[in-house]
Amino acid sequence: MSENSWEGFQWLNEPREWSINKSRLRWTTDRKSDFWRITHYDFVKNDGHFFYKELEGQFTCQLEFSGQYRDLYDQAGLMLRLDDANWIKAGIEYVDGIAKASVVVTRDFSDWSVLDLQEIPSNFWIQAKRGKDHVEIFFSTDGVRFQLLRLAFFPPCASLQLGPMAASPKGKGFEIDFEPLKFQTN
């Protein structure tokens, strides 16, 4: 996979504090920000932070990141987004003092799947493989061994938005660092 700089990326919901230094992207999430649609909570939130670029066709991508999770539902990772009602976010979500590998797939309504991690990893990797009508999500705590976390239907489309995301639904915000996104077309 080739490494990409952050050139050509843009914000959906730019956070108050962010910077790019030697290709490392860092931001602090704004308080009470999230991406979620309806299920279980009966609300729609679309104010989490997402730094993205448009990507066409089928691809494989990988994102490495680290965060200082501290409050309930602090989350960071990779987002693939078609529009406000069709998106996937995958990464770490902090729940009741436990870091969880997490995937939310939204097609009008959000669903959520999680897997407890042994500890909060110093670095975490999410890999996504976009097929014609699906996305496979893998995770790793060492950047070498990847484990399948989710295979989900995702609507066929010519292009979608891809990049890092982070949010703090219940907390005051936390700091997160992202290495440049890597990707290749399939």
Rank of each mutant, 00 (worst) to 15 (best):
D108C: 01
P121C: 13
Q147A: 01
L25P: 14
D34T: 00
W18V: 05
N21A: 11
V103Y: 00
Y52S: 10
A101S: 01
A152M: 04
D116E: 14
F139D: 03
K53D: 05
A167N: 11
S110L: 10
T106R: 10
A101C: 05
G97E: 02
Y41Q: 09
A128V: 07
E7V: 03
R24V: 10
N13R: 04
N86H: 15
P180W: 02
P164Q: 00
S23F: 09
G57P: 14
L148N: 12
L148Y: 07
S159P: 00
A128K: 01
A158W: 06
A76S: 07
E17I: 03
L115A: 07
D133V: 01
K132L: 08
A76Q: 00
F146N: 11
G48C: 03
D177E: 06
L80A: 13
I38Y: 10
L80K: 03
E54S: 12
S66H: 12
S102M: 09
V144E: 14
P156C: 05
N123G: 01
P155K: 02
L148V: 14
S113K: 15
G97W: 06
I38C: 09
W112D: 06
V95H: 13
L115Q: 09
K182S: 13
D108Q: 11
E54C: 09
D30Y: 02
T106F: 14
F139G: 04
F138D: 05
Q118G: 05
I137F: 10
V95W: 10
G77F: 07
E14R: 09
L160G: 03
H134A: 13
I20M: 07
F174L: 10
S2N: 02
M79N: 07
Q62K: 02
Q184W: 11
S159E: 01
S2M: 00
Q184Y: 11
A101R: 00
D116P: 15
N21D: 12
R26V: 12
T106L: 13
D133S: 10
R70C: 10
W18I: 07
K89E: 04
G143F: 03
A90H: 00
R24P: 01
H134N: 15
L72K: 04
K22T: 09
Q184M: 11
M165G: 02
F183M: 03
